[in-house]
Design a protein around this nucleic acid. Structure first.
Length: 553
RNA sequence: GCGCCUGUAGCUCAGUUGGAUAGAGCAACGGACUUCUAAUCCGUAGGCCAGAGGUUCGAAUCCUCUCAGGCGCGCCA
């Protein structure tokens, strides 16, 4: 709806500009706002005030010209008014609003989809946890945000690929191998001291036990390097399998799993290094190799290859992002923990050095999650193996609650996850509030069906649903596509959770004040169409969040 | 010391990129079940948008400074 009105406004402005009645300006920057106060109509434009200074005429005079043209569109508008310093307020006619329901019925599960993204190739990379241990709560938030964002951007017309980057190279993998080997030897009565920097969690013992049941004590006879390598490969495969299971349980989907080791195998790291040297973006100093990131605004140059000859984490990461660019993504979105924010300028510099624009790259930073149980913080530290896994939380509170809670805040705000609240099946828990609205509607529809009544858009009579709560509900339904677009455009998927709350609230209010099934046959038919539309939109929005829409509760 | 994020009702947070009288939900208080699910609804109360300047028709939003909290400033990953 908003889009329709916007394009009408733009047409009007374009014709006024042609007549040189108003100064020309960039039409693409024009947007409508929705006034906080209902008395000001459905949409408002400040365009007259923006133009006033350049036109050297009072804003209300310019507003008058626009109003006069727009008013002629009597099918669309009930009234167009000038208010305050020069706002133009549009009240859309109820009949226009009601037509939104035709769209919902026509598009069904695809209502809310658009071609906003115009098929642009986008990659969202998220979670990307090292395969050295199970996913914990913090990964869960990244998973929920990333998966939801990917779904939203698909709906908004982008060509999206969700990717998981597997850091399966480097020292931490050897430490993993060594940790498993030690536990394995322990099982066989050989008590080597456990390494200080080893992975402490019990899952390491489980993996060691699996190795024993497969290999017996055969690994004891191997050379140290060979044994570690075997343990490393077995453990990372096993852990990655577990990660995949947890993500599936969480309804998180990836299109691609990208292994860091393939960057080396396919010489991409090497090629990227020589590319940088050729472009004079790297240089030798103090026995190390540096990237000139300062050329692109970083505060200091960064090391690519250390004095000892090994590469930093940054080096393969540049190769990885070069590979992303080579795959043709116009937007590269990385979802990182907020503690990596110092890494952003460096990566932006790398992107520019590789010949792309820094806007092609977006780092979405996810702030910390802290757990609270019975009012007390639950202590977590990865190093000691004392952490709460994602799976434990899902098992405790359920997938739906978990996903919703992770999306309740904008991602750069810290999140307190209250386990007691999450488990409450009451009004305090927004997930149940929303799902309850969906279930209620299903219940009414079932009830109606038992009386032979089914929602049929063809039987919607003109003039129905044009007032009061009915109209309010329709207006809320109508904003849904705008919400999806705004989430995608601003990379703020959390807004969808607030929209759901708003729609559920509007429905519950409607339900308590109005009857759907009544003696009034025409009104009943119309309201069945209305609530069926609400149900559809609830289901659509929930599905973008990967949350179920239950038919009964 | 430098940089980034945060600061909005008692609590937890929104605020559509600068718009009109700053909004929800909890908690508090008062109401609504013979009626399609009360896991719901209606009403009341609650504010110097951390503070001070500035930019303009107009600021919670942009700029500068101050204060408070969090996080980063490796040839770690």
């Amino acid at each position: 709806m908003k889009e329709q009105i916007e394009s009408l406004l733009k047409e009007t402005l374009a014709s006024l500009m042609n007549e040189e009645a108003i100064p020309s300006c960039d039409l693409s920057t024009i947007t409508l706002s929705t006034p906080a106060n209902k008395e000001f109509g459905d949409f408002a434009s400040n365009i007259a005030m923006v133009m006033a200074s350049r036109a050297k005429r009072p804003p209300r005079e310019i507003a008058g010209l626009i109003k006069e043209r727009m008013e002629r569109l009597t099918e669309t508008f009930d009234k167009v008014e000038i208010a305050g310093p020069g706002f133009i307020n549009f009240s859309v006619s109820p009949l226009m609003w009601v037509r939104v329901l035709d769209t919902v019925f026509e598009l069904k599960g695809r209502y809310g989809f658009s071609d906003f993204g115009k098929g642009e190739k986008v990659q969202v990379e998220f979670v990307s946890a090292n395969p050295t241990g199970p996913l914990h709560v913090g990964h869960g938030r990244g998973a929920a945000v990333g998966d939801t964002l990917a779904r939203i951007m698909k709906a908004a017309g982008f060509d999206v690929e969700a990717e998981y980057y597997i850091n399966d190279v480097g020292n931490q993998m050897n430490i993993l191998g060594l940790s498993v080997l030690c536990r394995y030897r322990e099982l066989l009565g050989q008590g080597d001291p456990f390494p200080d920097n080893g992975y402490q969690g019990d899952y390491i013992r489980d993996i060691a036990a699996k190795l024993r049941s497969i290999h017996g004590n055969g690994i004891l006879d191997m050379g140290e390097m060979e044994a570690i390598a075997l343990c490393r490969e077995f453990a990372s495969t096993d852990i990655l399998g577990g990660i995949k299971e947890d993500l599936a349980l969480f309804n998180v989907h990836f299109d691609n799993w990208f292994s860091e080791s393939t960057l080396y195998r396919d010489h991409k790291v090497e090629n990227t290094m020589s590319f940088l040297r050729k472009e004079d973006l790297s240089y030798e100093a103090d026995g190390a190799l540096w990237f000139r990131t300062t050329r692109y605004g970083d505060e200091k140059d960064r090391v690519l290859r250390k004095q000892d000859g090994s590469l930093t984490y940054f080096a393969p990461d540049i190769a990885y992002h070069k590979d992303k660019l080579d795959r043709g993504f116009g937007k590269i979105i990385d979802i990182w923990g907020a503690d990596h924010h110092g890494y952003v300028p460096r990566m932006k510099a790398a992107i520019e050095g590789l010949g792309a624009k820094s806007d092609n790259f977006h780092a979405l930073l996810i702030q910390l999650v802290s757990l609270v149980r019975e009012g007390q913080p639950v202590s977590m530290s990865t190093r000691s193996g004392e952490f709460v896994t994602l799976k434990e939380i899902i098992d405790e509170v359920g997938k739906d609650v978990c996903r919703y809670f992770f999306m309740m805040r904008k991602s750069d705000a810290q999140l307190v996850f209250d386990l007691d609240l999450a488990k409450k099946k009451s009004e305090e828990n927004p997930v149940y509030y929303i799902q309850y609205a969906h279930a209620r509607i299903c219940s009414i529809l079932k009830n109606a069906a038992s009386q032979g009544l089914t929602p049929d858009i063809a039987r919607l009579e003109e003039g129905m649903l044009t007032t009061g709560d009915d109209l309010e509900l329709i207006k809320t339904i109508a904003t849904y596509p705008d919400v999806v677009v705004s989430c995608a455009a601003d990379l703020e998927p959390h807004r969808i959770s607030f929209y759901l709350l708003e729609l559920a609230t509007a429905f519950h209010r409607f339900y308590n004040r109005n009857r759907v099934i009544s003696d009034d046959i025409k009104l009943t038919a119309a309201r069945l169409i209305l609530i069926a539309s609400v149900r559809q939109v609830l289901a659509n929005a929930l599905s973008l969040m990967g949350i179920d829409a239950p038919e009964s509760m």
